[in-house]
Structures are given as C-alpha cells and as structure tokens.
Amino acid sequence: MTEIVKLKGLQKKFGNFQALRGVTFTVEAGEVVGFIGPNGAGKSTTIRTLLGIIKRDAGQAEIFGKDVWKESLEIHKRISYVPGDVALWGSLTGGEIIDLFMKLHGGGDKQKRDYLIKRFELDPKKKAKGYSKGNRQKVGLIAALSVDSDLYIFDEPTSGLDPLMEAVFQEEVEKIKEAGKSILLSSHILSEVERLADRVVIIRQGEIIETGTLDELRHLTRSTITLSTEGDVSSMEFVEGVHDFTQKDNQATFSADNQLIHDILEEAIKLGITKFEAVPPTLEDLFMRHYEG
C-alpha cells in the first residue's frame, strides 16, 4: 500500500497555545479515514496544515509523497477540499461559484456538475447571499465532487445538510471510494463515519489517542448486556469487567469489557441463564469513552 497522506509528529502553535502536539497518522491509497474528536481537538487545524493554508511548526507532513507546504501547488492539482463552513461571495450565484471552483481546480466535468446539482436539489441561479447554511454547504460539495481528484479532504462536510441530503452525500462518497480514491473525512456525525470509514483516527487536545479499524476499536470497549438468571443475579455486580450494574427483579443490565467477556459469561452460566441480550457498542459509546477519557 502507498501512503497518500503521511503525518509524523506534526506540531502547531497559535501564540502560546499548542494546538497540535505531535499528530501522526496516515491515509493509505484507496482508504477512507474517519478523523474525529471533540470540539477544538485540532481536526481543522490538521487539515489546514495539510492544505498549506497554515504553516506547521514542526514535524513531517506529506501528501502524495510531497511536502504540503513547499510543493502545495503540485498537490492541489489532485485534491478536493470542502470546509465545514463554506463561505461564498454573496453577489455570485451558486452555479457561477461552482463553475469558478471547477475552473480554478482544473479537470472539471460539466455533466457531473449538472448531475450533482440535480441530486443535491440546489437552485444554481440564486445569489449565494440568499442560500441557507445547508445550501452553501451543497455548493462546496458539488464543486469538490465535480472535479476528478485522487484525495478528498472533507472537514465536517455535511454540517447543516438535512438527513436526505446527507444520504445523498454518503452515496456519492461511496462512489468515489469504489473508484479507489482516498478520503480524509472529519465529522461529528458518527453514523456517517461508521458507514464510510475503513479506519478511524481519534484526536484529543492536539494528540492522536487512537487509530484503528472500527472492529479493532470496538474490541477495546464494552458491550451492553441484559441478563436474567435462575440464581441471584446480583452477584454479577462483583465480577471483574462488569460496570454500571443495575438490577430490576431478577434481571440485570450492565456493560461488560469485551476483553473479559469470556470470564463474565462463565460466571453467568453458573447462575443459569434464562434470558440473554448483548448490544455491541455503537460508535457513539466508543467515542463518549474516548472523548471523556
């Protein structure tokens, strides 16, 4: 596999504030990487550094094997970017702005543009001043998706989109994924990440605290288990790996460390299981734990 994006020990300070303290991760060819973390963690800062909008203080940052600051022009020919807050020139129409972005990027596809305008139900004749937040976001998305790139960088691309449009976005991203492109997707909408991402990178306070596939990450967390037993279920509370234990009559609900699930079930079997339900951790649970960490 080749590394499309490669970050190593990336650091960035704003005045006295250390926004990034050694960010390291990669995006491989053909891979979709979900980039998540709490507000202010440094996601946008990392992305802006990748785009050469701001200059890093230390560390290594490459796209397509080229330095993101020195060789930004070469890199930019082959990437698309959508910021979380697409700001537009009020006096231009959405259609004009899309055309402009396509032209300045190069290699746009007029048909794809028209198709996307229809899919996203955008009125391209309206002056951008009159667009709602979601519609502004659509302009940015259409412009980025209408051109052919090898790497797509999305920073909360769907903020403000309604669920229907979000679904359209996800479908379109799946298409570029199938076409073998690489994607770096930062988002707070975890279901979106869950659906699209091959791998997840979690950042907190300027540091990467976890990376891995979803399965790998799930393994590190807890499932929610509901259990009824013939014997006294309350003894389960003290088994190692059981947390947040609650009990109602003879039915207990608790979360269980996935690594210790074998031992926990063995204890339960001793009590005689009459009912058993296990819910795997949602991405949401996973991140709650990491965010709060």
Binding site: D99, K103, L104
Partner: peptide, 20 residues
C-alpha cells in the same frame, strides 16, 4: 435572479477579483 452558470470572464482569479 442570477446566472445558472458562469461567464467565461469570471473564471479566473482576475475575473473573480474584478467581479468582487
């Protein structure tokens, strides 16, 4: 109501800056 697609003259940094 504005244009559905951009005039050629807009499609460059210069065109954009003149416009704004």
């Amino acid at each position: 109501e504005g244009r559905e697609s951009a005039k050629k003259s807009l499609l460059s940094v210069r065109g954009l800056f003149i416009k704004i």
